[in-house]
Design a protein around this nucleic acid. Structure first.
Length: 811
RNA sequence: GGCGGAGUGAUGGAAUCGGUAGACAUAGCGGACUUAAAAUCCGCUGAGGGGUAACCCUCGUGUGGGUUCGAGUCCCACCUCCGCUACCA
């Protein structure tokens, strides 16, 4: 047959049309077949897919297609994380409505998605900004409110006095507003909504054990650290003037005789009463200074309130200070400072001349007279009255018991993780479904009135209060309880709410009675493979686990954890920097597909590096993948139906290589997903194939062409489908059984074994495959070259690794 | 500061369990084809040295030590880069 040139535009356009109906990728519940739920993190519709997305989806798609070929019933959905701040920023900049802007972006990106030929079941598509999605955010919110898992409290927000608006953390640059670079951001307390994730802190921590093996260790470590459980003691110091308690949390109550002051967080309620006017304004300045600051950069500062507290263990009188490094949001917002045994306290006390008094000595040492640094390890208690001589661990235990017995403290477990603040003073998000009534207070919107619709035609100015507060039709509402005049909540939800349960919705995306039918979840869940960027290792993946547990406790699902296996791909960087619009180094997926075609782009995304590694995207190199596809296509077309009538040695050799290649690619899929080496193996095979061209039998050519199409199907689906069709076979290729490597055909007859003398490579001998150790030794010792290096000496020892190598040791 | 990852040719990377370092690809060089170029096909390509040649020798995986018959791979110390996290008492 005559060779045809590889024209990706023709091939890809053809199959693109063919797949447009979407029927090939539709997933349906089928109890007969094993299911496989493969999911890639849903993108924010920023306007265009970039090459980082392409990498993510190429990994997921290769796996989805492989699993199809392995006979699984595959669920492979896609959607849009469509709420969020960029839409509002674009609205301000371009005078467009956020909804319309988002919709346009989704359409553009979906088009790109389809050009790449990713195997999604688009019937299940979800866009989180659609009322039929976010109504279930509201529904879940109300269920959580009923159970006390959603509650209100005052919390600090970043506030720009110039815009008179709340800023997101990423809008704070060097402590100043991003739009007013000289205006320092202030901290302002607002009533806000919180999800009580701390109620699940213990379970979230304990269940990490269930994820081991399926999730990367570093993600689990990050989550453990983020939850940050620590056991300690809460102790009440007494305010000298009034006798009222000041509660502190410490993990080292054994050091309490070394406490030389009590330090309050600047927001601590007592500061209001203890500090003078000057102190109060200093405290306020400390709080504001924290906005957007790199915490490591903040230098410790503080001031004395002039008040004193009494140590409950020894009655000692210690001064009360305010310190900027004490956090109101952790523990009790107040600490006892033990400079001799805590680095931070040491630094602070040294700076202000507060005494440093050691009370713990190393088990094998003495108390230092004038410590140069804090001794933070466990040791033996000294200078501590009745407790002297105890080791730290038992002192902790017994001193805590005393506090409990005498009522001035107790054992306590503190978590680093805080309740999840979900209120956003923003427009483009899910309206929080509550109503504020002057008589009835906070009233949830009745379930029957959901969804609370987000009004679409509004002006976003970027200044003032929550944008929704300026929409009278939205705000004014009758109270569902008393019928009186009331106003709607004008804050919207954090977009992490949207992405915390979307993977359930995919299973039943059109349900208008419930967020999803529990039966369908039972079939598809848990997610067998979740794939996404490691940047979501903490927030998204903890919130998703939290929601799963909440939905379980609501009786909607029966599982504890949503994701069995997590794969975190590396980032695609560009010129050593993370791709971002502001840096102007974004590689658009559209450009790549335009120039080289979808198969080439996908192949290159997988070939550039193993998927878990970061990769610096350089255009050079894409060419090679295009050439590779062309080599396959040209070989296939010019050899179609061709070949010798008789079979010979060339057949045997190339079929051996074919089956070795199948084995290699299969192994990569089953164990480590290093598709760069899978593709390299197929390239090597094709190179060998070129060498054997013209020497192969008809039967061998046919088998090779068939298997080759199957082998590349997960990586280059367009070309695979085209080859499959040209061979006159019934498609689609990605629903065919994955080829099996035939171990007998793959086996080598002879192997070349390196021979070392004293560990240095000195020669090679050829032996039959499977040769016994002594046969290998004989062959090695008989080799002329090797003998030259033996210098006539007798081997002291010969190490033989069957099938691998021989090492002869001489002295 | 804490936790994690990585350092291999000009470049991306390979070497999966301690066993031939540099597969595969890019870039470069040379050849074939062509009036010419592109495309394609073939060959060479870690450094240094030797040989007419097939080939051979020495060195070589961030640095310095160690374990081992044998180390890119394991252990110790250090250097550099990257990511995450960060006064969490």
């Amino acid at each position: 047959m005559p060779e045809k040139p590889y024209d990706h535009t023709v091939i890809e356009e053809k199959w693109h049309q063919h797949w447009a109906s979407g029927e090939h990728f539709r997933a349906e519940e089928n109890a007969e077949k094993p299911k496989f739920y493969v999911l890639e993190m849903l993108p924010y519709p920023s306007g265009a897919l970039h090459i980082g997305h392409v990498r993510n989806y190429s990994i997921g798609d290769a796996l989805a297609r492989y699993k199809w070929m392995r006979g699984f019933n595959v669920l492979h959905p896609m959607g849009w994380d469509a709420f969020g701040l960029p839409a509002e920023n674009a609205a301000i900049k371009n005078q467009t409505a956020p909804g319309a802007w988002t919709q346009r972006n989704i359409e553009a990106m979906k088009k790109t998605h389809r050009r790449f030929g990713f195997s999604y079941d688009w019937d299940r598509e979800v866009a989180t900004c659609e009322p039929d999605y976010y109504r279930w955010n509201q529904w879940i919110f109300l269920k959580m409110y009923e159970r006390g898992l959603a509650y209100r409290k005052k919390a600090l927000v970043n506030w720009c006095p110039e815009c008179a608006t709340v800023l997101a953390n990423e809008q704070v640059v060097d402590g100043c507003c991003w739009r007013h670079e000289l205006t320092p951001v202030e901290q302002k307390a607002l009533e806000q909504w919180f999800f009580k994730i701390t109620a699940y802190a213990d379970e979230l921590l304990a269940d990490i054990a269930k994820l081991e093996g399926g999730w990367p260790d570093r993600v689990l470590t990050m989550q453990r650290n983020w939850i940050g459980r620590s056991e300690g003691t809460e102790v009440d110091f007494k305010l000298e003037a009034t006798g009222e308690p000041i509660r502190v949390f410490t993990t080292r109550v054994d050091t309490i005789y070394g406490a030389t002051c009590v330090i309050l967080a600047p927001e601590h309620p007592l500061v209001e009463r203890l500090a003078d006017e000057m102190g109060k304004s200093r405290a306020k300045a400390m709080v504001d200074a924290r906005a957007g600051q790199d915490p490591g950069e903040i230098t410790k500062e503080g001031f004395s309130t002039g008040a004193y507290a009494l140590n409950p263990y020894n009655g000692e009188r210690v001064p009360i200070w305010v310190g900027n490094f004490v956090l109101m949001t952790y523990g009790t917002g107040a600490i006892m400072a033990v400079p001799a045994h805590d680095e931070r306290d040491f630094e602070f006390c040294k700076q202000y001349g507060i005494p440093i008094r050691p009370v713990i000595r190393p088990a094998d040492g003495a108390l230092p007279a004038d410590p140069k640094e804090a001794f933070t390890e466990y040791g033996v208690v000294e200078n501590s009255g009745e407790w002297n001589g105890l080791d730290s661990a038992s002192a902790r235990r017994r001193m805590t018991e005393k506090a409990e017995r005498e009522g001035f403290g107790q054992g306590a477990v503190t978590f680093r993780i805080k309740d999840w603040g979900v209120s956003r003073q923003r427009y483009w998000g899910t309206p929080i479904p509550v109503i504020h009534c002057a008589t009835c207070g906070v009233v949830p919107v009745p379930e029957s009135e959901l969804p609370v619709l987000l009004p679409l035609d509004i002006k976003i100015t970027g200044t003032g209060r929550s944008p929704l507060a300026d929409v009278p039709e939205f705000v004014h509402v009758a109270c569902p309880e008393c019928g009186g005049e009331a106003r709607r909540e004008t804050d919207t939800m954090d977009t992490f709410v949207d992405s915390s349960w979307y993977f359930f919705r995919y299973c039943d995306s059109k349900n208008d009675q419930l967020p999803f039918d529990p039966k369908r979840i039972a079939y598809w869940f848990p997610i067998d493979q979740y794939i996404g960027g490691v940047e979501h290792a903490i927030l998204h993946l903890i919130y998703s686990r939290f929601f799963t547990k909440v939905l379980r406790d609501l009786g909607l699902i029966a599982i504890d954890e949503p994701v069995t296996n997590l794969f975190t791909q590396g980032m695609v960087i560009r010129n050593g920097a993370k791709m971002s619009k502001s840096k102007g180094n974004v590689v658009a997926a559209d450009d790549v597909v335009e120039k080289h075609g979808a198969d080439t782009a996908r192949l290159f995304a997988l070939f550039a590096a193993p998927p878990e590694k970061d990769v610096d995207w350089i255009d050079a190199g894409v060419e090679g993948q295009y050439r590779f596809l062309g080599r396959i296509y040209r070989f296939a077309t010019r050899n179609a139906g061709g070949g010798l009538e008789t079979t010979g040695e060339a057949d045997r050799r190339i079929l051996r290589r074919l089956h070795q290649t199948i084995g290699k690619v299969t192994d990569d899929f089953e164990t480590r997903w290093h598709f760069n080496t899978s593709i390299a193996a197929i390239m090597e095979f094709v190179n060998d194939l070129y060498g054997a061209e013209g020497k192969l039998s008809k039967a061998a050519v046919a088998e090779i062409l068939e298997k080759l199409a199957l082998l590349i199907a997960p990586f280059a689906p367009y070309l695979a489908e085209e080859l499959w069709e040209e061979q006159g076979r019934q498609g689609p290729v990605f629903k065919q059984p994955w080829p099996e490597a035939d171990a007998d055909l793959a086996r080598e007859d002879e192997i070349e074994v390196p021979v070392q003398v004293n560990g240095k490579l000195r020669g090679r001998v050829t032996v039959p495959a499977g040769a016994a150790a002594d046969a290998m030794e004989v062959a090695a010792l008989a080799d002329e070259k090797v003998r030259g290096f033996l210098d006539g000496k007798q081997p002291v020892k010969v190490i033989v690794v069957p099938g691998k190598l021989v090492n002869i040791v001489v002295r």
